[in-house]
Each structure stands twice: as C-alpha cells, then as structure tokens.
Amino acid sequence: MGKYDHLYEKTIASQPIYDGRIIKVKVDEVLLPNGNTAKREIVNHQGAVAVLPLTDDGKMVVVRQFRKPLECTIVEIPAGKLEIGEEALACAKRELEEETGYVAENYTLLSSFYTSPGFADELLHVFVATGLTKGESRPDEDEFVDVLELTLDEAHDLHRTGEIRDAKTVVALYAWENKVLRERG
C-alpha cells in the first residue's frame, strides 16, 4: 500500500472521444475512494517546451500571435509541442529558431510542470536560453508571429495590460525578474 492510496481514483471504463493531431480526448469513469463513481474528461497531450530567450543586453525575446481559442492576439515566449520521441532540449532549440530566428549557445532547464492537471496531462518544459545569435525565423506554414525584444519593465507593462497572460510566459517573466534581483544582490 502506498502513502496516498486513500486518494487514488481507479479507472473502471474509458471512452475515446477525439483523436487529433495535437490532443486526444477521452472520458474515464472512475471509482472514487469513498466507493462512488464519477466521470473525468481528460485531454492527452504529447507535452511541450517553452523557451525564455534572454539577449546579452538584458531583453526577453517573445512572439506576438493570434490565439484562436482566446479570439485575440497575445505576447508569449516561444513554445511548441514535442514530436513523438523528441527530447525536450532538441524541441526547445527547434522552436526558438523556427519562431524567432534566434539560436542560443546555452540552455538551462528552468522548470517542468503540468499546465492544467485537472483535465490535461500536458507536461511543459521551460528552458532559459542565453548567448543568442539573431538569424531568420521560419515559422510553420500556419503560424504567423511578430518577434519582439522586451525589457523587464516593458514585459511587466504588457502583463499589466493583459497582452501577456498565458501561464508559461507569466512564469518565465517572474523567473526572469527573480534572476535579475538575485544578480543585483
């Protein structure tokens, strides 16, 4: 018996709903710890990476793009889905170059976290990239982005106005601010 077995929900039935290019959706019937049953709507995702690119002159490289689920344009750090069997670091390098044109000499894993564990199993790996060299971006054929370089103050302004509002970019923004504050002593 494990330490947290009293919280475990045993799957007693699973119904696939959708099998797409990015996500799979299913509904599981589970046996609850108290003996009752419940339904859980679950989104399966390959996992993804995001990159906090920092220039030598203290700016964060971001992209502005339209996000259909939100019906608006937001500013985000570069990110993308892992391909089957792809290592997170290789994906981070690919996504940074494709979306922004930048190539980095150094990558450090900042954190890996589940984006919405209440309904999805997506694990996001966030890297900090430094030693940047600017090149030519090559976004996917269905991806349209503007590349921006922001100071910490500019990034906070965009967060206050709601242009930065996705979890990975907010986490990256505060991790960057924490790094700057530690360096100042």
Results as ranks from 00 to 15, higher is better:
116 S>N: 15
62 V>Y: 09
99 E>Y: 13
115 T>E: 08
144 F>S: 10
62 V>H: 09
120 A>T: 15
114 Y>E: 13
82 L>H: 06
62 V>A: 10
77 I>F: 05
87 E>Q: 10
134 K>V: 04
89 L>P: 09
76 E>L: 15
80 G>I: 12
79 A>E: 12
138 R>V: 15
116 S>M: 14
87 E>M: 03
128 V>I: 11
150 L>T: 06
58 G>E: 00
129 A>D: 01
88 A>N: 02
148 L>V: 02
81 K>W: 09
106 N>Y: 01
151 T>K: 14
46 Q>E: 02
113 F>T: 13
138 R>Q: 13
76 E>Y: 15
58 G>L: 09
68 K>V: 08
72 C>P: 01
77 I>W: 07
89 L>D: 08
94 R>V: 07
108 T>S: 05
137 S>V: 10
53 P>S: 01
126 V>M: 12
156 H>W: 04
153 D>C: 11
124 L>Y: 09
55 T>M: 04
75 V>G: 03
150 L>R: 13
85 G>A: 02
146 D>K: 13
67 R>M: 12
152 L>V: 06
97 E>D: 06
58 G>P: 03
102 Y>A: 01
101 G>T: 01
121 D>H: 08
82 L>R: 04
108 T>H: 14
126 V>Y: 09
103 V>L: 08
118 G>F: 12
37 T>E: 00
126 V>A: 06
69 P>Y: 12
87 E>T: 01
124 L>W: 08
90 A>L: 14
107 Y>L: 09
99 E>L: 11
119 F>H: 13
147 V>G: 00
126 V>Q: 10
81 K>E: 00
78 P>C: 05
132 L>R: 07
48 A>Q: 06
75 V>Y: 10
79 A>P: 07
101 G>R: 11
36 N>C: 07
151 T>C: 04
51 V>C: 03
154 E>C: 11
49 V>A: 00
108 T>I: 13
57 D>L: 00
139 P>K: 15
154 E>M: 13
40 R>C: 09
116 S>I: 15
41 E>Y: 12
114 Y>L: 11
135 G>A: 09
37 T>V: 04
81 K>G: 02
56 D>Y: 00
80 G>N: 03
64 R>S: 03
73 T>Q: 04
112 S>M: 03
65 Q>E: 10
53 P>V: 07
106 N>I: 07
131 G>F: 05
125 H>K: 03
35 G>T: 11
95 E>T: 03
53 P>N: 09
146 D>I: 10
129 A>G: 01
69 P>H: 08
126 V>T: 12
127 F>V: 03
126 V>E: 11
72 C>G: 00
148 L>W: 11
144 F>H: 12
117 P>Q: 11
138 R>T: 05
100 T>K: 05
157 D>R: 14
103 V>C: 08
142 D>E: 07
94 R>N: 08
52 L>T: 10
121 D>Q: 15
68 K>G: 01
70 L>Q: 10
93 K>M: 10
77 I>H: 05
157 D>H: 06
100 T>A: 03
150 L>P: 01
